[in-house]
Design a binder for these strands. Structure first.
Length: 767
DNA sequence: CCGGAACGCC
């Protein structure tokens, strides 16, 4: 008995030979009926029919042909190739596959190695690797295809690679398929050494001229971020196919630094007259997305339409994301509405980019019969947390439990962040505690949740939990430093311990960590430490510049802020709205009205940054300090969307300092309407009246406060005395400390010294 | 047996 092996090449050959397209396939249905009535048959016609059905992307039709043959008992129409083809048509759904397996056993076809291999392949593809392995273990003489099939079926790279090792040890000779399959398990960094070994073996046995092997090598090197090696393999390949080109193209796409190369590769492909397919367009458009190059993205969209791929599902998906990244969501939505087929990725993209409609889009998706996956839930939950939709959030949490998506750590991480945004850290903790596998991202989500909710100590404690259990990354440090920076009730020592860990794990050159670190020192008043971290930062990101300027501004050092600002501009780093906030603040604190005004005006004019309410607040404060109250009030009127609390409070404070009762009353009135329970405006107004000697009004205000139930809040602060637990809390008028007498005396001394320095500075400014 | 697309922790 001759064993005929079936592989994709023979399939391809048959389909090419027939060159049957969908239309011909349907017209040949009649031929199929005639075939049934013909007593002299062989397997070739049915095999051809089934192959053409699969080629026309109608595997179900192929299965139907097969099923009907079995039903009518035309068994002499079926050979081992028929079975292999039928098994290839079993995509996803396991039921027909199992039926064919049963038939293969009763009919004896199972003794063909090609049939066994196809069965194994079917089980691998439908997620039943165990069954495939079972068949494999019962094979007397597995051929290389059997080995390769099992190898391709492993889920975890580690298992696959140890299997390949075993193959090698027992003397299985690798072929091109073995190598390309094995290489596909070396894509992450753990596969690095194995991948290199495989490459040298490939060269040793002369298989590097095989196009599949070369393509797999290109992909592997690209995923490692070694584009130079990828390109070398590509250049040395004797035969390149469109997959090779697409592989190098996608390599360039995945690495942010090679966006231009990606686009150049595409142009080269077109110039060489290579056929661009849907994958080429997918990669190329993706490169435009990464580069945020809208113009080129539009051109690629145009070319893809011309070549008939404009509505292809993956091309459409990536075009949507490209347009969304280029902030033209309207165009992105248009692409979606025009697509013929929408898969889970299309819907997920829509949900992620239209956050305000995420919930209704999710419903629409389910009505469309598309099943959500983990990424869908991540996008949806993120949208829900941004929108602060507490009710919907809990509902989706329930849905995740019901659909078993809570077993996905990535979905849980999102839920942790969501509950943190909803200010219910208990729920975050609950999700975290029930996590099957705590990734570093889970820890990061928890820590940043604590930080955002002002639970700085919990954040620090969780950070020490990370150190015990896994390896912190840049995000971890970003969050914990944020917590230490934001809280006065956390000892700076914790911040310093973080700093030492950063150096230990070698993240001190990370731009995000660096700026978080100097920001933390800046917020905690350690300006010298801030400056040192900044100076030691090799690659100064825009975040680092922003952070150092705000640190210096918080310190009130006008000269340094201005110098740093100038230097930043000289280095070609664009200031952002936060930078301006710092610069304006420092101008205000130092009475540099003219400079401040000039910078404020230049924000929109020269930098195209729309001043936010915070910037206006800063200007009002600046003008108010020096008593230019009318100008300040005029500016308040210009705030888009009306003035907020803080602006008015600042202006009222200025009215008090400069004794402007008339304006003060106006402002206080507006404030009390905005915030009836707030004590601030009452206190400021009563101080203002008191300073003017209007005790009658003071009494009226006090009474008003009492009747409305407004209470003056007691201010608290902390002093860090050095040792970790040496934080001392105190409030105004507090004399519970054993050395409070000394403390007050020192405070008085410092106060008078400050007054002296201030008057000296004011004289200097006047000069 | 090789190539592509969506998401989350600063």
């Amino acid at each position: 008995m001759i064993t005929r092996q079936l592989n994709s090449k023979t399939l391809h050959g048959i389909s090419n030979q027939l060159s049957i397209n969908l239309r011909r396939f349907h017209s040949s249905k009649h031929a199929h009926q005639q075939l049934d009535n013909n007593p002299h048959r062989n397997a070739l016609p049915i095999n051809r029919l089934m192959v053409s059905a699969i080629t026309a992307k109608h595997p179900f039709e192929a299965l139907e042909i097969f099923r009907r043959h079995l039903q009518f008992g035309f068994l002499n129409d079926i050979d081992e190739v028929t079975l292999a083809i039928a098994l290839k048509a079993c995509t996803g759904d396991q039921t027909p596959g199992r039926q064919i397996h049963g038939f293969a056993i009763t009919s004896g076809f199972v003794s063909y190695i090609s049939v066994s291999n196809s069965l194994m392949n079917m089980y691998c593809k439908s997620g039943q690797f165990d069954k495939a392995l079972c068949i494999f273990n019962n094979l007397n003489n597995p051929d290389i295809v059997s080995w390769n099939t099992v190898l391709s079926g492993f889920e975890k790279s580690d298992d696959a690679l140890s299997f390949a090792l075993r193959m090698n040890l027992i003397g299985v000779v690798f072929d091109a398929v073995t190598y390309s399959t094995a290489l596909s398990f070396c894509l992450d960094h753990e596969g690095f050494l194995f991948g290199l070994q495989l490459h040298s073996l490939i060269v040793k046995f002369g298989l590097d001229s095989e196009v599949y092997v070369g393509n797999a090598l290109i992909t592997m090197y690209s995923r490692w971020g070694r584009l130079v090696e990828a390109r070398r393999v590509f250049d040395e390949m004797p035969n390149k196919d469109s997959v090779s080109w697409n592989a190098i193209l996608s390599g360039y796409t995945q690495d942010g630094d090679y966006g231009v190369e990606a686009i150049l590769a595409l142009i080269e492909m077109m110039r060489k007259g290579l056929r661009l397919d849907h994958v080429s367009f997918t990669s190329a458009a993706s490169a435009c997305g990464h580069e945020k190059n809208l113009e080129l993205g539009k051109q690629i969209h145009g070319v893809s339409i011309k070549m008939g791929y404009g509505t292809h599902v993956s091309v459409g998906n990536v075009l949507m994301s490209t347009y969304s990244k280029c902030e033209v969501t309207g165009d992105a939505n248009k692409v979606f509405r025009r697509m013929h087929d929408r898969n889970v990725i299309s819907w997920t993209t829509m949900i992620s980019m239209n956050r305000e409609d995420a919930v209704s889009l999710f419903k629409e998706m389910r009505l469309d019969g598309v099943c959500p996956n983990d990424v869908t839930f991540i996008g949806l939950i993120h949208a829900i947390s941004i929108g602060n939709l507490v009710k919907e959030g809990r509902m989706i949490h329930g849905l995740c439990i019901k659909t078993n998506f809570l077993s996905e750590p990535s979905v849980c991480n999102c839920l942790i962040t969501m509950y943190a945004r909803f200010e219910s850290m208990q729920d975050s903790e609950k999700v975290f505690d029930e996590l099957s596998c705590r990734e570093i991202i889970s820890w990061n989500a928890l820590i940043s949740g604590y930080a955002q909710n002002g639970l700085s100590l919990a954040a620090v404690q969780a950070f020490f939990g990370v150190i015990k259990e896994s390896k912190p990354n840049a995000y971890t440090f970003g969050s914990v430093l944020n917590a230490v920076g934001a809280a006065e009730d956390i000892s700076l020592k914790h911040g310093q311990r973080c700093h030492s860990h950063i150096i230990k794990v070698g993240l001190d050159s990370d731009p995000i960590v660096g700026s978080a670190l100097l920001d933390m020192y800046g917020k905690r008043g350690s300006i010298f430490e801030s400056q040192r971290v900044f100076n030691e930062t090799q690659e100064k990101s825009e975040f680092a510049w922003t952070a150092i300027i705000s640190a210096l501004a918080r310190h009130g050092d006008y000269e340094s802020v201005m110098n740093q600002f100038k230097e930043m501009e000289n280095k070609g780093v664009r200031p952002d709205s936060i930078t301006f906030l710092s610069v304006l603040t420092v101008c205000g604190r130092n009475g540099m009205i003219h400079k401040g005004r000039q910078l404020f005006d230049s924000m929109l004019k020269d930098y195209h940054i729309e001043p936010s309410p915070d910037h206006y607040s800063c200007m009002v404060d600046m003008l108010g300090r020096v008593g230019r109250l009318e100008e300040a009030e005029e500016l308040v009127g210009q705030i888009p969307g009306g003035p907020g609390l803080s602006v008015l409070q600042s202006l009222l404070g200025a009215c008090r300092i400069h004794g402007n009762v008339e304006m003060g009353e106006r402002i206080a009135d507006a404030l009390m309407k905005m915030e009836p329970a707030g004590s601030g405006s009452y206190v400021l107004m009563s101080n203002l009246y008191a300073e003017k000697g209007d005790w009658e009004m003071v009494a009226i205000l006090r009474k008003g406060m009492k009747s409305k139930g407004v209470r003056k809040e007691v201010g608290f602060s902390w002093a860090d005395v050095g040792d970790i637990d040496g934080l001392h809390g105190f409030s105004s008028g507090d004399n519970t400390h054993p050395r409070s007498e000394e403390i007050y005396r020192m405070a008085e001394c410092l106060g008078s010294e400050m007054k002296y320095l201030n008057s000296k500075r004011e004289r200097a400014i006047a000069l």
